[in-house]
Amino acid sequence: MELWYTEKQTPVFGITAKIRETLVTEKTDFQDLAMIDTEEFGRMLVLDGMVMTTVKDEFVYHEMVAHPALNTHPNPKHVLVVGGGDGGVIREVLKHPEVEKAVLVEIDGKVIEYSKKYLPEIAGELDNPRVEVMVADGYMHIIENKNTYDVIMVDSTEPVGPAAPLFEKGFYQGIYETLKEDGIFVAQTDNPWFKADLIQQVNKDVKEIFPIVRVYGANIPTYPSGLWTFTMGSKKYDPLEVDETSIPEMESNKYYTPRLHKAAFALPKFVEDLCK
């Protein structure tokens, strides 16, 4: 008998993958969690029926959350990752030697626990001495730590359940206040095919708070539609003004390169129109 996992990405559209094995299913205090092993994408973390990461394509998302912002800020010593309990963004952040401390605030400790067990290639740096892992509410951490971080990265699920407050204007205002005077933040902002209204609203909200706002994209095959967006808000530094030759080549990267840094901000016209 064949087993298949299907994510209903909208009420009328989904993606499906053939399963080798179901490794764990658990209803945590915050969400339904599953870890499954698929034939095409390897081990896959699923939260509330949504694919969060897979062994095969995780590098795209994690590199594109971390490197554009860290290569835009000239001296990112203190970095906060909100969410991201799988550890992939933290792994990418630690590739930058100027980062002295990276703080991970994940609301669901089970995500951390099972990622360490089943996704060691993604979560392998969570025990690094430069990392502080906190099982706590990222929204409250933002409110309670003003003027603390050089870069903040919001690695959230889609805007449902415990992640819903992470897409509100008040949260972005809190991020602004938690960043230092030249700080940068970046958040995943879903896809333009199914969540155009979300991208428009986030862009509008962030523009009312940050003087520099840029949207960029990447291709992630297991995420809804495959075309994914990220929104960067900066107090001082424009990612489009970064000198490409100053960006270090990282041989361990599989997606992000110095050439891609500015190219990622070149959006299809229908996505550009959402950001006006």
Rank of each mutant, 00 (worst) to 15 (best):
Leu3Val: 13
Thr6Val: 13
Thr10His: 10
Thr10Tyr: 06
Thr10Gly: 10
Phe13Ser: 15
Gly14Phe: 08
Ile15Thr: 15
Thr16Arg: 15
Ala17Cys: 03
Lys18Asn: 03
Lys18Thr: 08
Leu23Ala: 09
Leu23Glu: 07
Val24Trp: 01
Lys27Trp: 00
Asp32Glu: 05
Asp32Arg: 00
Leu33Tyr: 04
Leu33Cys: 04
Met35Pro: 12
Met35Ala: 12
Glu40Ala: 15
Arg43Ala: 10
Leu45Lys: 13
Val46Ser: 14
Asp48Phe: 12
Gly49Met: 12
Gly49Ala: 12
Met50Val: 15
Val51Phe: 07
Met52Val: 14
Thr53Cys: 14
Thr54Val: 04
Val55His: 00
Val55Pro: 00
Glu58Trp: 09
Val60Ile: 14
Val60Pro: 03
Tyr61Cys: 06
His62Gly: 09
Val65Asn: 01
Val65Ala: 05
Ala69Phe: 07
Asn71Glu: 11
Asn71Arg: 06
His78Gln: 13
Leu80Asn: 02
Leu80His: 03
Val81Arg: 12
Val81Gln: 11
Val82Lys: 08
Val82Thr: 07
Gly83Ser: 06
Gly84Asp: 09
Gly87Pro: 07
Ile90Tyr: 05
Glu92Met: 10
Val93Asp: 06
Leu94Lys: 03
His96Pro: 03
Glu100Cys: 09
Ala102Gln: 10
Glu106Pro: 02
Gly109Gln: 01
Lys110Phe: 02
Val111Tyr: 03
Tyr114Val: 07
Ser115Met: 10
Ser115Thr: 08
Tyr118Gly: 11
Tyr118Ile: 02
Leu119Met: 11
Leu119Tyr: 00
Pro120Leu: 01
Leu126Glu: 05
Asn128Ile: 01
Arg130Glu: 01
Val133Gly: 04
Val135Pro: 01
Asp137Ile: 08
Met140Lys: 15
Ile142Glu: 07
Ile142Asp: 02
Ile143His: 10
Lys146Asn: 07
Thr148Phe: 10
Asp150Ile: 09
Ile152Met: 11
Ser156Thr: 14
Thr157Asp: 05
Glu158His: 04
Pro159Ser: 04
Val160Arg: 03
Pro162Ile: 14
Ala164Tyr: 11
Ala164Phe: 12
Ala164Met: 13
Pro165Thr: 11
Glu168Arg: 14
Glu168Asn: 07
Phe171Asn: 06
Gln173Cys: 09
Glu177Ala: 14
Glu181Ile: 13
Glu181Thr: 15
Asp182Lys: 14
Val186Leu: 05
Ala187Tyr: 01
Gln188Asn: 10
Pro192Leu: 06
Trp193Lys: 13
Phe194Gln: 05
Lys195Asp: 13
Lys195Met: 13
Gln200Asn: 09
Gln201Asn: 14
Val202Leu: 12
Val202Cys: 09
Lys207Pro: 00
Lys207Trp: 02
Phe210Asn: 09
Val213Phe: 06
Gly217Cys: 07
Gly217Leu: 00
Pro221Glu: 14
Trp228Ser: 00
Thr229Asp: 01
Phe230Val: 00
Thr231Ile: 15
Thr231Asp: 03
Thr231Met: 04
Lys235Met: 10
Lys236Ile: 14
Tyr237Met: 06
Asp238Pro: 00
Pro239Met: 03
Asp243Glu: 12
Thr245Ile: 04
Thr245Cys: 00
Ile247Pro: 02
Pro248Glu: 15
Met250Gln: 11
Glu251Gly: 14
Pro258Asn: 04
Pro258Val: 12
Arg259Gln: 13
Ala263Met: 10
Ala263Asp: 10
Pro268Lys: 04
Val271Gly: 00
Glu272Ile: 02
